[in-house]
Nucleic acid binder design. Structure first.
Length: 257
DNA sequence: GCGACAG
DNA sequence: ATCTTGTCGC
């Protein structure tokens, strides 16, 4: 049994940058959450191409660099058919419940560089399993109008009573996601991002988790992001050099088309 | 009162 | 998530 209530507003306020208006951010999240569709916009059985996106970070004093990768997996071919990357500066800190404000830009940029568009996007993080019902997966889905699923390794908000079972809202008992176990002793938390039912989301993620905590598309993006990161570490990070690194990564991803 | 807390 | 030494297991 595991319980999480999410961070207090006081804690969140203390972490947010000066000049950032939390009350406005909450209004945006609430408004966008109201536009989330939880029905199947596509038939889950017809899905073949699934994209997974992940972001790695490089920290050096005051400068922070984001390395994002999007990988598209073909279920019928059992292969990653394409991947893309983006490298750029990150300005917003990690604040629980506000992950979108930090990661949405790198996630979207990596996605937009894919040549072949897929039918479903898997994003590391939650979807509806969020105190304001708008985790990064839902934020991405509502903005891009593409079916998305949130896949996380730990809980941000909600209650889970069984190893495999529903993620319930602490106060309303509403089902906001589902916990599954694809890897021994390692939970995988699935929640609707946009344009899919929870049932379909869970089915698809289960199909893509081959004995690992995370599904293949996200796993591949995670590995690629870390590989790129290793090649970058050691180099300087001025404004111009960051842009150069981004151009280099664009070239390397083009070589795989 | 203290601590919880996606990546 | 990232940083980071030694340690355990295949």
């Amino acid at each position: 049994m595991r319980i999480s209530r999410g961070p207090s507003e006081g804690y969140v306020r203390s972490k947010v940058p000066k000049g950032f208006h939390l009350e406005i951010a909450r209004k945006i999240q609430t408004a966008l959450a109201g536009r989330v569709i939880e029905d199947d916009l596509i038939s889950i059985d017809s899905v073949d191409l699934v994209t997974g996106i992940d972001v790695a970070y490089i920290n050096r004093g005051s400068t922070e660099i984001g390395v994002s990768v999007a990988s598209t997996y073909s279920i019928s071919k059992s292969l990653i058919i394409e991947w893309s990357c983006w490298i750029g500066p990150i300005y917003f800190p990690y604040v629980p419940t506000l992950l979108s404000f930090r990661e949405l830009k790198p996630v979207v940029n990596a996605y937009l560089r894919l040549r072949t568009k897929s039918q479903v996007i898997l994003i590391d993080g939650h979807g509806r399993a969020h105190p304001y019902r708008l985790g990064i997966a839902s934020h991405f889905g509502v903005c891009m109008h593409i079916p998305t699923i949130g896949v996380a390794k730990s809980l941000l908000y909600g209650r889970v009573d069984r190893v495999e079972g529903p993620i319930l809202d602490i106060s309303t008992d509403e089902v906001i996601g589902w916990a599954i176990q694809c890897a021994p002793s390692k939970p995988t938390y699935v929640s609707v991002g946009y344009g899919l039912s929870l049932r379909s989301a869970v089915d698809l993620v289960k199909r893509l988790c081959v004995g690992s905590q995370m599904p293949i598309p996200i796993l591949h993006s995670h590995n690629m992001a870390n590989n790129l990161k290793k090649r970058i570490i050691g180099k300087l990070m001025s404004k111009a050099s960051i842009n150069e690194l981004d151009n280099e990564c664009r070239i390397s991803m083009s070589n795989y088309l």
